[in-house]
C-alpha cells in the first residue's frame, strides 16, 4: 500500500486517502452518492504476469454522472477501462452493472449489457470506410436501427456524412475521435468509457470533444473518462478518482479535487513507493 504522508486534504470530508479501508469508502459512496450506483467496482485486482496492474480498486459510478479517473502514466487507468469492458481478466474483485456482474473475457457480451469502450488511440478501422466503421458499431442492433443510427450520427457529426465513403484512416485526429464516439453510440450504450480522448489532439479540438462528452451526459449517457488533461477533465466531471501505481490514492467531488495540486499528489505517491 502506498502511503500519502502529509497530503494537504487528509481528513477532508469528501476526499479520502486510501489509508481508509475499502469498506468505509463504499459506505461513504453509498451515503453521499445515491443508493444504487449504475457501475460498481469492488476490490478489483488485476495482474499481468508478476506485475500488479490494479490492486484492490473500488469505484462507483452513478447513473448520468461523469466520473473521471486521473493518474500518471502506468497508474492502471487503461487496465481499469479494459476490465470494465470485459477485455482484462481480474484475479480478484468484481465489476457489476446495475447489480449484474460483468463477465470476463467476452467483451461482446459486455457491449450487449450496455457498456461501450472507446479505447486509447481510438482504434478506428483505418482500412474501412467511415460508414463501415459506424455499421460495425451497430453490430448488435437490428438493421433498421443501424440505418437510423447512421442518420443520427451524420446529423450530429456533419463532417462524417461528408466523408462517409472515405477510408477512416484518411480522417484527421479530431475527426477520428468523432467517428470513435459516433461508432460507440451506435449501440445506444448506457455507459460510455472514454480512454484518453484528448490524446494527440489540438487544444481547440479537445475542447470540442469535451463539450460533446458533456452534451452526451446531458442526454443521459453515464460516462467514465480517463484523462491526462486534469483541468479540463475536472471541469466537466462530477466525481473523480485518482489512481497511482494501481491504487486509488484519492477520490472526491471534482469541484473539490480541482483545488488540489494533483501533480504533487502523483509525485508524493512516487516518492512513497
Amino acid at each position: 500500500m502506498p502511503t500519502c504522508p502529509g497530503l494537504p486534504f487528509t481528513g477532508s470530508r469528501t476526499v479520502i486517502p486510501s489509508e481508509n479501508t475499502e469498506k468505509s469508502m463504499e459506505t461513504h459512496n453509498i451515503e453521499e452518492r445515491g443508493l444504487a450506483p449504475l457501475l460498481n467496482i469492488a476490490h478489483l485486482t488485476i495482474h499481468y504476469g508478476m506485475v500488479t496492474a490494479l490492486d484492490q480498486v473500488s469505484l462507483t459510478v452513478d447513473r448520468g454522472e461523469i466520473v473521471v479517473v486521473l493518474g500518471p502514466n502506468g497508474a492502471g487507468k487503461s487496465t481499469l477501462m479494459g476490465a470494465i469492458a470485459g477485455v482484462h481478466k481480474p484475479s480478484a474483485g468484481e465489476i457489476s452493472l446495475d447489480a449484474m456482474p460483468i463477465p470476463y473475457g467476452v467483451p461482446e457480451r459486455v457491449l450487449r449489457m450496455g457498456v461501450a469502450l472507446i479505447p486509447e488511440g481510438r482504434s478506428i478501422f483505418g482500412a474501412l470506410t467511415v460508414e463501415e466503421n459506424l455499421r460495425l458499431g451497430g453490430s448488435r442492433v437490428s438493421r433498421s436501427d443501424v440505418s437510423d443510427g447512421i442518420e443520427k450520427a451524420f446529423t450530429r457529426f456533419p463532417v462524417l456524412a461528408e466523408r462517409r465513403n472515405q477510408s477512416a484512416g484518411t480522417l484527421s485526429g479530431g475527426e477520428q475521435q468523432q467517428l470513435a464516439i459516433a461508432r460507440a453510440l451506435m449501440s445506444s450504450p448506457a455507459v460510455v468509457l472514454y480512454d484518453e480522448p484528448s490524446l494527440g489532439l489540438a487544444p481547440k479540438i479537445v475542447t470540442q470533444i469535451f463539450e460533446l462528452i458533456t452534451e452526451l451526459r446531458d442526454e443521459g449517457v453515464t460516462t467514465v473518462l480517463v484523462e491526462q488533461n486534469v483541468h479540463l477533465a475536472l471541469e466537466i466531471a462530477d466525481y473523480a478518482y485518482v489512481l497511482a501505481s494501481g491504487h486509488v490514492i484519492s477520490h472526491g467531488y471534482a469541484s473539490e479535487l480541482a483545488s488540489i495540486d494533483l501533480a504533487r499528489l502523483y509525485m508524493g505517491n512516487e516518492v512513497a513507493e
Binding site: E108, S123, F125, G137, S139
Partner: peptide, 23 residues
C-alpha cells in the same frame, strides 16, 4: 454484415469484439 465483421476481425479481433461482434 458478416463480411464486414470478418474484415474487421481480420484487422483487429479485440476491437471488433468491443463492437459487440461475437468472436
Amino acid at each position: 454484415r458478416s463480411g464486414l465483421q470478418m474484415r474487421a476481425a481480420a484487422i483487429d479481433l479485440t476491437t471488433t469484439r468491443l463492437m459487440g461482434v461475437r468472436a
